[in-house]
Design a protein around this nucleic acid. Structure first.
Lengths: 110, 110
DNA sequence: TTTATTTATCGTAATATTGCAATCAATTAA
DNA sequence: TTAATTGATTGCAATATTACGATAAATAAA
């Protein structure tokens, strides 16, 4: 009925799915790329980088924050967003494990 | 308006987002894991592996097929699903590039 | 205090997703 | 042909997502 049956899957399946879901919108990919590329904390001019309104960007930032991939620190009147290093490392590990664990693609498929 | 503004983002951002979206549900993670683990084509008993009804599983299979990650071949009265090797390789490359390209996590965050 | 500036939140509309019962379509077995 | 099997599709309900205008909340500047 429109709600995912999380409890019926394993923790690791849910973990990977949540990370993937956070990356499942180009705006959020763009935000992460931007934060990663600058390699330093930048402030809310993420809005200027994206072709979306300020409330919409704020919403995507919240989604990434809820996935624990980024964090924001208040800095005067602005907010400084950046990659959340440890959780991001975890993200990389989880995704990396998935694409590596089964690196033997089937060649003779049905 | 509920609809993603795809045309405002780059191809590579959209590509990664689409792959991620396909992985953004634990059932679809489970299906891929199952198909990868068996390392050979199995038939529609995926339904028995998952805690979801047959129509729901069929829906998730379609989502994965639309993302080009799997494919199905008719085999008598059953359908044989398997990883779609080449596109899956591409998926691995795209995701791998993202998590590798920026492997220098910022240490001194705001 | 008043005014900017910055970002979050609220409210709303449009659309998408998730899930399943019922049913259909195609093939196989009897 | 008739029945069984397999999987897709339809139709529906519940919920989630995407987007943005309007507004609020917080701080800084005048």
């Amino acid at each position: 009925m429109g709600v995912t049956k999380t409890e019926r899957f394993t923790d690791s399946q849910n973990e990977l799915a949540l990370f993937a879901k956070a990356l499942g919108h180009p705006a959020r990919v763009a935000i992460l790329e931007f934060l990663l590329k600058t390699d330093k904390c930048i402030c809310g001019d993420i809005v200027n980088e994206l072709p979306l309104s300020q409330p919409t960007v704020s919403q995507h930032l919240r989604a990434l924050k809820e996935a624990d991939l980024i964090r924001g620190n208040i800095e005067g009147t602005a907010i400084c967003y950046c990659i959340n290093p440890e959780p991001f490392k975890k993200f990389r590990a989880v995704v990396g494990a998935f694409i590596k664990e089964y690196s033997n693609n089937p060649t003779n498929c049905c």
